[in-house]
Each structure stands twice: as C-alpha cells, then as structure tokens.
Design a protein around this nucleic acid. Sequence first.
DNA 1: ACTCAGATTAGCT
DNA 2: GCTAATCTGAGTA
Length: 228
Amino acid sequence: MPLPALPLSALLLRPAETAARGLLGALLVREDPEAGRRVGRVVEVEAYAGPEDLASHARFGRTKRNRAMFAAPGRAYVYGVYGMHTCLNVVAGPEGTAAAILIRAVEPVAGADAMRAARLAWAVSTRRADAADPEAARARLAGVADALLASGPANLAAALGITRADDGRDLLDPVAPLRLAAGYDVPDDQVAAGPRVGVAYAGDEWAGRRWRFWVAGNPAVSRPRRAR
DNA sequence: ACTCAGATTAGCT
DNA sequence: GCTAATCTGAGTA
C-alpha cells in the first residue's frame, strides 16, 4: 500500500480542506494496556477553517471550550455536545490558526471486539435506559456490524474510549496512547465530497462548502442526516 | 420516510 | 436563565 504523499506533520499545516482530504486513509490508534490496541482507518472527515468559518467552534474566538483549537497542528480538540456525546478533531494549520478536522468515521482495522466493548461501556455509563438494562444494550451492540462500530463522530469517540481528558493531547507523538499514524493513500477517484453535517446555522456561504470528505462506498462512512 | 427524547454545557442575554 | 449544539437510537408509518 502506498504511503501518503506528505508526512502528517506537513499535511496538517495545509489549509483545513486540503489537510482533511489528506487525512483519509490515515490510521487512528488507541493503545490500551487492558483492552489491547484498537486501530481504525480514517474514512470520513470534515474541515473547519478558523474564526472566519461561521460553522466552526472558533467563530467566537478563543473560549474555554475551544482553546485546544488554537494549539499546534496535530493536537486533539475534543468537545462534548448534545449533553452526552464526544467528538474528536485534529488541529490543523499553523499554531493559532484554529482550524480543525472533525474525524467522523474510521473503519476498524484491529481491535473491533474492544471497540464493541467500549461502545457498551459508554452506553451503560451514559444512557439511562442502557444503565437500567445492560443486557439489552449488549444484545443491541452484538448486532452492530464491525464496520459500523466507529461510524459517526460520537460512535467513534465511544469505540476508541475518547474523552475530554484527551483534549489538547498530541496525536502525532508516536508513543502516545491515542495517536495518528500514516496509513493508506486514498486516490482521488475514491474520494467523495459534500456539505458538512449539522451546520445549517452557519448560513449559505459556509454551510454550502463541500468540506465533508469520505471514501466513496466505504461501509464505515456515517449516514448523513438531514440538516437541521 | 419522519419525529422525538435524551441530558450536559458553552455562549449569550 | 435560556437556547442550541460538528449526535444517536428508538418509535411510528
């Protein structure tokens, strides 16, 4: 398999949409001494530019929540949303740019069982109904195809055990427990693009940009929902 | 196909 | 205090 044209550290200095597309095929690795190694291939991403991007969390400037966005490229920006969900971004651009790439889906390459177990752990610790009936939660997750375990940003975070404790961590550190690594090159003819999900509030100019990129036909790509 | 609950927090007034 | 949020799963049809 060919390697990406650029090392990740150089790729992440490019404009967000370029870096986002280039991140397709990279590997997201979670080392866990108990559960073992979990690896996913990035198959779906979204680019967010800096404060000028009205869909970006950086549009309010620097805040308590988004401070990691202003850190160096390759850092994690992890935030919580909708009361229970966690999402992972990779900071892009020169430090202070506040650009970021939302990782929306990875295709499990190793550790699918550990991902399933982590999804269950998240469910019973977060959702009231699953806490009340863990067996039902276990049975539901047992029916989830491997390819869907880390499909969608919040599912991805749950499957890899990503929490806000990971906010600001360096994903390019080759020995970090959560890291990005060079993976597979994805040729242009396998890359599809469309509008970002859930950013209708940003107005036509920004919501209309086709800054969501995915590997065409890949089963781990999340189902885009209707804009709200 | 559509609708809704869930449950926390940032950002704003 | 209030509103909406880079979401998901369950319910109805």
